[in-house]
Design a protein around this nucleic acid. Structure first.
Lengths: 158, 158
DNA sequence: TTATTCTTGACAGTAAAAGTAGAGATTCAT
DNA sequence: ATGAATCTCTACTTTTACTGTCAAGAATAA
């Protein structure tokens, strides 16, 4: 019942981007260094987040990633969903999937009492994650006095 | 972020016991047959549940397991907790563990913004699971018209 | 045109989950 | 007492998913 590191790293990385956002796209190497995440692994995670429409990217020098929307329009739920693939406590929940995917995994079909518990639990958890935006996290970072790192690419102009 | 089968099987098995409860203890072979769970695996799960104080057991002929408390005093949370070991969405949550266990897994210590999200999510989920008792499940089973199997050990006397 | 950066897909090591197995202990019925 | 039924304990195996690493390619800015 643990979240994967993809989810946790994903949220941390997205927060990092929002918190340190500047004019230029953020680069993997900077985010991974600040958040102490393996850069190669973070690349993968960002691909997932990009596919989910949460990130934009730009290649080449001075390229990098930027948030596809403003920080107050991106919720933790979206990030977890993108990284985790789905937000379900069990695989045997039928009828909740949009994709008409595969035969149901549950042999009890409509007779399963516990199914409802797991799907309701998933929903409750999802609602909580949906209530938190990246902006909320940034505000909290400010409160906590979390340091903002200057963008080294601007150093020359100071 | 999936619950283990131990949790799911555990809840199903405990429900089954509550639903079919008679004068005699329930036996692994009957429960596993009705719930379609490998009997050897269920044995293991029942050991966990017993250690957690949710089950009593009796060996020998006519032996088996019975609920340690009445069905309205056993919550889904307790079962999941016993089967899962803990109810935490991440391992990096410090200060929530009662056992002074091991060094903290999180390198960000008190500076971690996301920690709060995960521990709060864990709490919310736990609260939901705590609100459901085995009796609630039995009532729902009745509503759904779920069949109760007669205890074969009584057949002879009818 | 070259260095930088993202893109894509494949690969591997590790750990945890899921299930199997066997020998032992307790209890009941005879 | 004896033997069958049932739980108990520990160890083992198989499978799966997580957590990364790697290499070659494509786009972009200077």
């Amino acid at each position: 019942m643990k979240l994967s590191t993809k989810s946790r790293y994903g949220v941390r990385a997205m927060f990092d981007m929002a918190y340190h956002a500047g004019n230029l796209p953020a680069q993997i190497k900077d985010i991974s260094r600040r958040q102490n995440i393996s850069p190669r692994y973070l690349e993968q995670i960002f691909q997932d987040l990009k596919k989910a429409g949460l990130l934009k990217s730009r290649r080449g020098p001075q390229g990098g990633y930027s948030l596809a929307r403003s920080a107050d329009k991106i919720t933790v739920k979206e990030i977890v969903l993108a990284a985790e693939g789905e937000l379900l406590l069990v695989n045997c929940i039928k009828g909740l999937r949009k994709d008409g995917e595969s035969p149901p995994v549950c042999e009890f079909d409509n007779q399963c009492l516990t199914q409802h518990i797991w799907s309701e639990g998933s929903r409750i958890l999802g609602d909580y994650f949906e209530s938190i935006t990246l902006k909320d996290l940034c505000d909290k970072g400010q409160e906590m006095g979390l340091e903002k790192e200057l963008d080294h690419r601007f150093m020359y102009f100071i």
